[in-house]
């Protein structure tokens, strides 16, 4: 088969790139020990909203989904569904999530229906929220103020109303 020389060069270059990137993954993993986050648990999206399902608390009453683990350590179970986060959806009349300043908060999220996103402004929390899978990230809030969170993965007609608020009290 005849291949144009310049084309061949590109073949080689792209193959070389593949190899280089594969090596980069290897080196970053072995030499620098870089790892990517992984889902923490699996749940059944059909039953996740019932109380106590699978040891998570997405089905508990909204006000009981924010709990103090230890002084200054909180966990929040946020259930995402079309088109709200619960708790925290101020657009739907829910109270914002409130924690004192200096708190470390672990967010557990899962979705009841479709794929959602969770981005908490002003922190490095940004994650995918998938049905059947629990996502978990932790942030520390050292500055008092209002932190909004939004769904940043398009999830249907009222996607733009899917937001909530976390208040860090001084």
């Amino acid at each position: 088969m005849h291949v144009e020389r310049s084309e061949k060069m590109f073949f080689i270059a792209s193959a070389a790139l593949l190899v280089v990137f594969a090596l980069a993954v290897g080196i970053s993993g072995f030499v620098y020990g870089i790892q990517v986050p992984q889902p923490v648990g699996l749940v059944d999206p059909k039953t996740v909203a019932t109380p106590g399902a699978d040891g998570y608390h997405f089905g508990d009453p909204v006000e009981e989904r924010i709990r103090e683990l230890a002084p200054g350590r909180y966990e929040v179970y946020i259930l995402a569904q079309m088109w709200k986060f619960s708790p925290g959806s101020i657009g739907y009349g829910e109270d914002p999530i409130t924690v004192p300043v200096g708190s470390t908060v672990t967010f557990y999220l899962t979705s009841k229906d479709v794929q959602h996103g969770f981005k908490l402004q002003g922190t490095n929390i940004s994650m995918m929220v998938l049905p059947g899978q629990v996502s978990k990230l932790t942030a520390t809030f050292d500055e008092p103020g209002e932190y909004d969170f939004v769904c940043h993965e398009y999830c249907g007609a009222a996607h733009q109303t899917m937001y909530g608020r976390l208040i860090v009290e001084p």
Binding site: R67, E68, L69, A70, P71, R73, E75, T106
Partner: peptide, 14 residues
């Protein structure tokens, strides 16, 4: 216990 179980293992009790 609060620090070990709540803070460390991340499990709520109260």
């Amino acid at each position: 216990l609060k620090w070990v179980i709540g803070g460390g293992f991340g499990l709520y009790f109260g």
